[in-house]
Amino acid sequence: MTVFINYLGYCLRQAIISVSRNRWLALVSAAMIAVALAILGGFLLAAANTNQVMKNVQSNLEIAVFLDTTADIPELEDKIEQLEGVTSLNFVDKHAGLQEFGRSLGDEALLEELTGKNNPLPHAFLVRGRSAGLIPGLAGQIEGLSGVESVDYGGELVQNITRISGWLNSISIAISVLLAVGAIFLVGTTVRLSVAIRREEIEIMKHLGAGNRFIRLPFLLEGLAIGFTGTLAALTVLGLAYHRFALFLIQSSPLFFLHPVTAPVKLILIFGGLLLLGIAMGGLGGIYSIRRFSGV
């Protein structure tokens, strides 16, 4: 155990010496990792929030069924209730519908003008399904029933959000992969420079009977340290920015479905994942550089 601690202490000292010797290159490498992770993290948070918005919207989806003037309301109610997946059904009288519409507009004069025979709204049912996935199918079935003029369930909104979310994911993956490869390459260059500077020392250590692990570990630690520094910078910036964004959204948005992701588990998963990824990127850079330099 003492021997291992002694050995680890030696490797750590060597790693620190190497980083301080090439501090500018190490700093650039760490900055590159920070930028790559900040962008990836930004997109991951955006994707998580988009998914949450979609779920919020979908969980509150209901089908508005507008009836024509010839509709037999009790018969239609029976038929809709019997459809597989329907969990609730509310009839909205056209007068009540107008009151609701008027309240949302806040225009009393217009409301008065439209009351009575001038009411342009049809009677309607508000139908809820067991799950969001059933809504498009139910809407199609209801639309085919006689007495139904049209249905609306916000399908276009869901499709738009899904499409935007898909684009966000693709763009984030592409940019992050490019930046990650660049960052690994830069860390590799930094570590390779350290290897070149310490080439003579490596040769001497080999003569003295040092094994590959002994020679490689300081360089691997150097890569990991660069990765860790870059990741820490990225997570600090990202964390502060997201905190402000979430606070702003919670305080300023009255829309329930626009609430940001604040669940600790989700945030720990994203930030923890980024931390591991950043450290791994540094380590990969280190391993890539030292593999071909230290064969016994």
């Binding site: 003579e200 040769e203 003569h207 003295l208 009977g209 040092a210 094994g211 590959n212 016994v296």
Partner: peptide, 21 residues
């Protein structure tokens, strides 16, 4: 590899150019 390292540790090497760090 392990034997090779042990072998080298049983030897002491001295060079013309000293090879000190």
């Amino acid at each position: 590899e392990r034997h090779l390292l042990l072998h080298r540790r049983k030897m002491g090497l001295v060079f013309q150019d000293f090879r000190l760090l």
